[in-house]
Amino acid sequence: MGAVAQQAAPAFDRLLAGDQALLARAISIIEAGGAAADGLAQRLCDHAGRADVLAVTGPPGAGKSTLIDAMIAKFRAQGTMVAVLAVDPSSPLSGGAILGDRTRMGQHSADRGVFIRSIAARGHLGGLALTVPAILDALDAAGWPIIILETVGAGQSETEVADFADVKIVVNAPGLGDDVQAIKAGILEIADILVVNKADQPLAKRTVNQLKDMLELRAENKRDVPIVSTAANKGEGLETLMDTVSQSLAAIASRSAEDKISRRLSGALLRRADSILKQRLRAIDDERLGSLCADIRNGNQTLDDAAKILLSQELRWRVE
C-alpha cells in the first residue's frame, strides 16, 4: 500500500473531490478491465451526468490536436476547466504504443485546470468503445465540466467512440487526398458540427463546397449541419467555432443527468454484449463449423440459416 492510501478520506471520495492522481489511477483501473473495473464504473455512475462531452474526430493530418489546443485555450480564457481524452491508435504489431497526441497539446501541459489523458486502443477486443464510457463517467464524476474526446475517426472502433459524446465535431482539412471521401464513410453522418481546418490553404474553399454538396443530398431534416472554417494554428475561426459549440450545447441543455448516464450506459451494455459475442464466435471449433459448412454445401441449409443456427447455439450458451 502506498503512502497515499493511508490518508484519512477514502480514495473514492478524494477522487470526487478533484484529486487528479486518484482520477488518473481510476482511469487506469477501468482501462485494465475486469471485475474491479466494472465495480468502480458502477459507483462512478452515481456521481456522473454533469459534464458535456465534445467529440472531435477526423482523419490523421486534419489538425485535430491543434484545433483542440486552441479550443482548450478558449475554454480556459472563460475560466472553464477542460479534460481531454485522447484516443490513440497503437501499433498492432508490437502491442506497445507511443501516445503522441498528448505532446501536441503541449502548451497546456503545466496548467492544472486542464486534464489530458491518452489511452491506447491496444489489447481490447471490441476496441475502446468498451472502456471509454466508464472513463467519461470518471472524468465527469471528478468534476470536469467539459470533456473533449479526441478520436482518429479512421477505424470502426474509433468512430463508435464518438457516439458517447453530446456534441460531435468532425474535422477535415484540404489536401488530404480525396478530401471529403476520406471522411465520408460513416463519420460525416454523425457530425453535429463540421469543421474545415487549415482554411488558410488554397483548396479549403473547395472542401467547404464539397461538404455543402454532400449535405444537400441528405434528408431534409438532416441538412442543417453548420460548417465552420478554421485555421487553428493562427487562431482563426475559433470564435465562430466556440459560438457554434455553445449553441449545440444549449440545444441539449435540457438533457438530464440521468439521460446522459443512461445513454453512456446503454451504449456500454450493447458494446459489451457485442464484444462477448464476437469472442464466442471466434472460439468456435473447426469441427462444428465443418459440419455446418457441409450442410451448406449439400444444400441442407442456406448460408443465412446456418449463420442463425450458429448464433442461436451461442446465445443459448450465454443464457445457460
Binding site: 497503437s90 501499433s91 508490437s94 502491442g95 506497445g96 504504443a97 507511443i98 501516445l99 503522441g100 498528448r102 505532446t103 503541449g106 501541459s109 503545466a110 491518452s118 491506447a120 491496444r122
Partner: peptide
C-alpha cells in the same frame, strides 16, 4: 520500450 510492449507517453524536448 514501445517495442517491448509498454505504453509510452513521449514528449518533445524542453518540458517544464
Amino acid at each position: 520500450l514501445r517495442d517491448a510492449g509498454m505504453e509510452v507517453v513521449y514528449t518533445p524536448p524542453w518540458q517544464e
